[in-house]
Design a protein around this nucleic acid. Structure first.
Lengths: 134, 134
DNA sequence: ATATGGATTAGAATAGTTCTAAACTTAGAA
DNA sequence: TTCTAAGTTTAGAACTATTCTAATCCATAT
């Protein structure tokens, strides 16, 4: 697996301690944290980090394709380090957000059923009870 | 077609000029306006209406099932007076949001493909170019 | 080692939304 | 009709998420 440093360099981005810390926190984190959550967690190990830096980092890394911003909640952006195409499942009880494989429902499938639309991308949010909440 | 007054009464809600004005503006409006847009438009005919009233009205009518709040844009809520189940198409060029029939993709269909998930609801946002923008 | 352009910072500013408490209807009872 | 209680509206304050600003800092290329 590529190191953070390698990935940043590959995108012509400076390797900074802040970016690395944000990426390391997100890597392997599957619960789609908000920017504020990232900020608070990273701050523990990196007390001087600023909220603006976390916003900047998320935006920069998203543009570089290293992160994804997920639209599943109206008020705050949720961040996903899984950048492969996939959908989301939101538990109506505990609010947990899980990734769901893309092939459950591809743009192609939708295109076939959606006559007259020129679908390039499909975002699906499924809602129900997660395993824990049933 | 039911009058606004009848619908409000059926839901045990007081019939006020403000609620009626908001509903009348939204009725037949298919472009999913934001609260601010509703406020500005209704204000033209009703100069003393307050922004808080529009927020209250949207929330109240949504709870009563007379409106729907649509999650298609991170920063602001979009309001839809089409309360039947349906999906949305967002034009990546002009930002226009259109309703798409629900049967293109039902919760049932998704459930069949999504093993292990207990799907109660599916929200789909398709993205591409709308007719005008192609 | 040094220069320079990009990155980080704290805090101010902004946008959307919710809250507050007083004033004002609406709807139902008398 | 008139009265009343409960619900509604209002302006503006407050709050939350996010972006902006401008000064400082530091990663990288030389």
């Amino acid at each position: 697996m590529k190191t953070m440093s390698t990935m940043l360099k590959a995108n012509d981005l400076a390797v900074t301690a802040q970016r690395t810390a944000v990426m390391e926190f997100l890597h392997g984190n599957t619960d789609h944290p908000s920017v504020d959550t990232i900020y608070k967690r990273v701050k523990k190990r990196f007390p001087y980090i600023s909220r603006a830096t976390v916003y900047n980092t998320v935006k920069t890394l998203t543009r570089a394709g290293m992160l994804q911003e997920v639209l599943v909640q109206q008020d705050k952006t949720r961040v996903d380090s899984n950048v492969s195409r996939h959908h989301h499942f939101k538990c109506v009880r505990c609010g947990r957000i899980e990734d769901v494989p893309y092939d459950i429902l591809t743009a192609k499938h939708v295109s076939e059923h959606a006559r007259g639309y020129h679908v390039e991308e499909v975002r699906v949010v499924m809602e129900g009870r997660c395993k824990r909440c049933r």
